[in-house]
Structure formats: structure tokens, C-alpha cells
């Protein structure tokens, strides 16, 4: 066969494959949205769920998901920032660093069930935290740490060494250079990574079933004192998230509209993840423009 024809055939195949992947996603998202969107209403988003009568909503689950996400980020971001700085700026090239990198990789490929059970036995049972948001947030931190750390490291490494040299030449300490020069430069990448990771954390269920629990305790949205048990901000109450809710109503739900609630919740979840993705892109670009002179 003529080389030109081969070329054409091969390139077309590649395009078809890429097209197929888009079709798969379009099918998945389309299916979820078509089944779920009709059930989403203001009432659905703002009323509490029902155990066995129709017409329940997902207000608690929606709030819990976001709150859990914020707590997870509060815990995991400082740690992964520190770890990312270590790997990119301080890590010596030796076996110790190798082991650390390996540890991070392993943490990221741990099955979520194992992390959930570990969290259950250690935090829920051993430390007597009970099924609580905080136990869930720590379990989710285990997932988020490797993702965020790798992301911070990559973002820092993509900053040119000239910047580092410039900082050091000004007499700044290495640490100061990292904080004042390198991190602002790497910020768009870091922010994008955080938001993308957030999407992933948002959909996690297996690790939360045994840590944050599967019941949405009654929340009083007028009470914002975190030490009150009914407050939305209380972190020692059990909290069912959207993903766990989907899992639960599909496995033991006996409300007559279980299928509809499940479809609606899935659609909400997908929309939130979609928003995360698009805003990550938007924020990343915007920050990039702000911190560099590009685009002005």
C-alpha cells in the first residue's frame, strides 16, 4: 500500500478513536442528565431526604458534600504544599526520596475500601470520633494528599530555575524564594489541581461509608455555632454525602421514588463536577494572566 494511504488510514483511525471516547462520555453524561434532570427542582435541592415516602430532597447531603470537601482541603492542602515543596525544592537525590515518592504513589493507588476501613477502625473506633465529618475528612485527605502533592510538585517544577536564581541572588533564603517567588508563579497550576482533585473527592463513596457514615442527621440551618450538635458546621456529627446517598438508596432504599431520587442526585453530582472542571480551567487562566504579564 502507498505510504500516503497508510498515513491517511492511520490518522483517520486515531481521529475515530478520539471521537469514540467523546461519544462514550457524551453517552454517560447524557444518560445521567436525561434521567436525572427532570427530578431536579428547587424543592429537591432544598428539602431533607425521606426514608420511605416520596418527595424527599437532598439538602443535607448537598451541604455535607461541600462541607466535607472544604474540611478535607483545609487539612490536606497545607500538608501537600509542604510535601510538594520538599519534593520539588529540597529533596536530595537518594534512596530516601525514592522511598518517599514510592509511598506517595502507593497512597494514591490504595483501594478506597481499604482506606475507608482503616479510617473506620482507627478514627471511628479507636479514637472514638464516631461516624463523623471529621473522620470522613481525614479519610478523604488520604486520597487527596497524593494527588495534591504531585500536583504542587509539578506546578513548582514547571517554574523556570531562573526565577529561583534571581530570588537567591537578591539574598533571599531558599524558603523565602519559594514562598514569595516560585509559589505565586506556580499558583495557577496549583489552583487548577486543587479544583480538579476536589471533583474527585466529591464523588468518593467507598471511603466514606464507614467513616462519615450513611445517615444525614438533622441539621438546623439557623444555628451556625460549630459546637452545637445540630449546627451545620458541627464536625462530629455523621454526614451522608451525595455519593453515599446514591449508594445507600440504591442498596437499601425503600422510598417509592428511590430510582428518581438516585437519578436526580447523580445528575446534581455530575453537574457539580462539571462546574468544578470548568471553573478550574477558568481560574487557572485568570490567575495566570494576573500573575504574569501575558494577555495584557
Amino acid at each position: 500500500m502507498n505510504m500516503k494511504t497508510v498515513n491517511k488510514v492511520a490518522l483517520t483511525t486515531i481521529k475515530i478513536i478520539a471521537g469514540l471516547v467523546v461519544v462514550i462520555l457524551a453517552f454517560l453524561i447524557g444518560r445521567i442528565l436525561i434521567q436525572g434532570l427532570p427530578h431536579i427542582s428547587w424543592h429537591f435541592l432544598t428539602s431533607p431526604s425521606q426514608e420511605f415516602i416520596a418527595g424527599g430532597g437532598i439538602s443535607y447531603q448537598l451541604f455535607n458534600s461541600f462541607y466535607l470537601l472544604i474540611l478535607t482541603l483545609l487539612i490536606s492542602f497545607p500538608i501537600s504544599l509542604g510535601a510538594g515543596i520538599f519534593l520539588s525544592e529540597y529533596a536530595p537525590k537518594n534512596w530516601f526520596t525514592e522511598i518517599i515518592r514510592m509511598a506517595i504513589e502507593i497512597l494514591s493507588s490504595l483501594p478506597s475500601v481499604v482506606v475507608g476501613l482503616f479510617g473506620f477502625l482507627l478514627f471511628v473506633v479507636q479514637f472514638k470520633m464516631g461516624f463523623s465529618i471529621i473522620a470522613g475528612a481525614i479519610a478523604l485527605t488520604f486520597f487527596n494528599l497524593p494527588l495534591l502533592t504531585r500536583n504542587v510538585e509539578q506546578a513548582l517544577e514547571s517554574v523556570s530555575d531562573l526565577q529561583r536564581e534571581a530570588g537567591l541572588a537578591l539574598g533571599l533564603s531558599k524558603w523565602k524564594t519559594v514562598i514569595k517567588v516560585i509559589i505565586p508563579e506556580a499558583l495557577p497550576g496549583i489552583v487548577t489541581g486543587i479544583v480538579l482533585g476536589a471533583g474527585r473527592v466529591f464523588g468518593e463513596a467507598a471511603a466514606l461509608i464507614y467513616t462519615a457514615g450513611q445517615s444525614a442527621s438533622t441539621i438546623d440551618f439557623t444555628n451556625w455555632n460549630p459546637f452545637n450538635a445540630a449546627s451545620p458546621l458541627n464536625w462530629s456529627r455523621p454526614a451522608e454525602t451525595l455519593a453515599v446517598h446514591i449508594w445507600k438508596i440504591n442498596s437499601e432504599g425503600i422510598m417509592p421514588d428511590a430510582a428518581a431520587v438516585s437519578a436526580g442526585t447523580s445528575a446534581v453530582l455530575i453537574i457539580v463536577v462539571l462546574i468544578f472542571n470548568l471553573s478550574a480551567r477558568y481560574l487557572g487562566n485568570k490567575l495566570y494572566r494576573k500573575y504574569t504579564a501575558a494577555g495584557k
Binding site: 454517560l28 445521567i32 464523588g203 468518593e204 463513596a205 455519593a243 447523580s266 455530575i270 468544578f276
Partner: peptide, 11 residues
């Protein structure tokens, strides 16, 4: 591809 990652495994 990022959206495919975001779909929860339950779904």
C-alpha cells in the same frame, strides 16, 4: 477525560 474521572464509581 477529566469528567470521566469525576463520575463517581457508584454511578
Amino acid at each position: 477525560t477529566e469528567l470521566l474521572v469525576g463520575i463517581p464509581s457508584v454511578v
